[in-house]
Design a protein around this nucleic acid. Sequence first.
RNA 1: GCCCGGGUGGCGGAACUGGCAGACGCGGGGGGCUUAAACCCCCUUGUACGAACGUACGUACGAGUUCGAAUCUCGUCCCGGGCACCA
Length: 858
Amino acid sequence: MSEQRQSTATSPPSAADAPAHRYTAALAQEIELRWQDRWDAEHTFETPNPSGRLGDPELAAARGEKLFVLDMFPYPSGAGLHVGHPLGFIGTDVYSRFKRMTGHNVLYSMGFDAFGLPAEQFAVQTGQHPKIMTDQNVATMRRQLRRLGLSHDPRRSVATTDPAYYRWTQWIFNQIFGAWYDTDLDRARPIDELIAELESGARPTPDGRAWAELTDAERRDVIDSRRLAVVGNAPVNWCPGLGTVVANEEVTADGRSDRGNFPVFKRNMRQWVMRITAYADRLIDDLDTLDWTDAIKTMQRNWIGRSHGAEVHFPSPAGEITVFTTRPDTLFGATFMVLSPEHPLVDALTTPEQSLAVAAYRRAAIIKKDIERQDEGREKTGVPTGLTAVNPVTGDDIPIWIADYVLMGYGTGAIMAVPCGDQRDFEFAGKYGLEIPAIQQPPDAWFAAHGIEPTLDTSRWPVAFIGDAPYVNSSNHDSGNDSLDLNGIDSVDEGVRLTNEWLEANGHGEATITYKLRDWLFSRQRYWGEPFPIVYDDDGRPHALPDAMLPVELPDTDSFSPRTFDADDEFSDPESPLDRLESWVNVELDLGDGLKRYRRDTNVMPQWAGSCWYELRYTDPTNDEAFVDPAVEAYWMGPRTDVRPDHPGGVDLYVGGVEHAVLHLLYARFWHKVLYDLGHLSSKEPYARLFNQGYILADAYKDEREIYIDAFDVEERDGAYYHDGRPVTREWGKMGKSLKNAVSPDEMYEAYGADTLRLYEMAMGPLDASRPWETRDVVGMYRFLQRLWRNLVDEQTGELRDDLPPLDDTTERMLHRTIDGVRTDMEAMRFNTAIAKLIELTNRATAVTADGTPRELA
RNA sequence: GCCCGGGUGGCGGAACUGGCAGACGCGGGGGGCUUAAACCCCCUUGUACGAACGUACGUACGAGUUCGAAUCUCGUCCCGGGCACCA
């Protein structure tokens, strides 16, 4: 290990008295820079569009079939690149070059996802406008990426913070605000079409009155409530420590903020919400048309969390209580009900005798954060409300409890408890002595597996039974209800089907589908983001600004921070930085009905907004009349039915890390589908093929205080690690600033040149695998390039060698095998094995031609 | 607990549809060049036994299918990732 650590400090192989024309880092650098200049001067990597501003139809046709290759664009961090960042970029560059050389018109560029927290926090600390830092960082990253030799079309680069870009982000927001979801046609439509249907009576108003009878305010309420982007009171995640609300996707499993790790509280607040849930089914179903890994598809499916089941209505003293269940067939076994402590009917269902206990339990449950709920080892707790509801199939009175294992945020916030068939209900019933009647006869093998004799006496069962087995005690022939008899049926599917029919026929419930996905909380109380293109009138109603008023530019200020609070101060209220800019907030505008006073929306959009559509802008980056020209979009993104019949269109190859599985990738698909529904796009999906590259990992070291220390100052002695003589512990993680183990590409350029670095990163292993960085291994690729160079160029004179003997038959055959193999490997993005084949060929050629004379071959 | 991946030399990895396990690179050993070293070049390098031709063993572990298994099936263990009181 000690050699390894020393060699991580960059020490180029000494070339002091090497031959004048050896392939050294200096020569590599000279060659690389010369070519990079030439590519710029000759516009080598500018890609023609089929039409429009960047259009050159003849050239586009001459280049061949189109191919859109995309990297997940980076956040322009101040720390600059480390060697882990460009892994995917190098892969897409190699692939793009290969495809260009084999007859494709390749769209390949790179933009910057430049809104976000780090630049804002830096601005708060220094008082300097975040734009200054952001622009600097973008310039630095552009320079670093150029030095890597990436073949981007520089004209197509975008930054989400550019008003010429976010003008269209705001325009798209207005499209979503100006749309509603037609569940009959299963697509979004312009809100004007809804208004027309309401006016004509083709669609009834919510309360059945004629449209003409509604007041203006009532009409606006009806319309605004149907929009795909809605501002209204909703339970949101309030993070006092950050001073802003955050999306569900940005809250960690233990109830803290993804950024900053502050506590997050559920609060009702007036915020922007996008109705991504309207698209839940399509977001799941269309995964089948995508060429993505099963892992990512599964993560999206799980996040959306579609469950088929039924809603069942239980009569109670406070009216009907509706529960959601995936097992309506177990209704005969429902012996009690459980409401979430936050359920709105709890007060109405609590008897005076129980009110103290219920109030105490509720208070405790609400104060408890999700973390603590889990920390208690899942021991179920709850209290009875004192009242009962009626099981609609048996007619029995069943007690109503509240318990915090039932979550308000899923289903209806209430369950029917079937203790014999649900492990949680089983434990709860066991603890509180509630009845557990058996309603299925489990197979003998189940009893054998649990080491007990078959019995229907559930007090002997160690766990609940879940699965297919004949129903027992599942008939209501004796009761007054229309009959339902499941006894003897041994299929859950059949039991569910019959029960659903019975529920619907008797008005006790209906089959339904529930999702875990929540609507997307879209506003943030921050500065460094896109302002909303929205103003409010005196009645507080939102109005979208017309296209001519876009962009709404972010106003200048020197106060960039939202008001933040003690991280645990749950009952604080958000205050956006834009709230303080009174002269910007209050405006007089003519929105078509004369000059009026309005207040601007003072929120900004979440960082995900800009990345929801950037690939579209790459295709037509200079268009100032539309976010993208339809013909250009159709060319680059249109469905490829030649690839598969149900091809949804989209980017041909999208490469990036797996960490965006449910955030960016879900949001971008949602926006894309809205734009498709509204007729702006020919593609149904943004990313037809997704490839998740691995990460570059590296050792990291912590001292006694559990603080990471610079990995390059650590010494190894006798298998232990020390820093300044003190012992430290070794860990393993993704290379980066936070682990203090980042290796800069600049060091690699200086020691070996960019081509060696590129070759090394591609040769380390398959692109989709994570792999540890070993600086000492880089030299192998350097030697390979040196050998290759020496085979072609005289190291003394710098002239091309003219003393090369003709290839012998064996080498000739190997050459052709290599051409074939490399081509196959490149097509499949197996760059590591392609490089190995090229090394083999070079080594063979070296053996044959070294010193100009063929060698004896083993 | 559930759902995905994965486990091959000292290290990163290769082996495409079941057909010579360990390509290629690093590191190690030996040699050449050099006053010497670095750089570079050549040979060698899975383990055990053997001076050597070689022989046996070997792809996490245990069974199985097959003429033949790193690869397919079943079970077990371990590692990584995601989700998790989701009714």
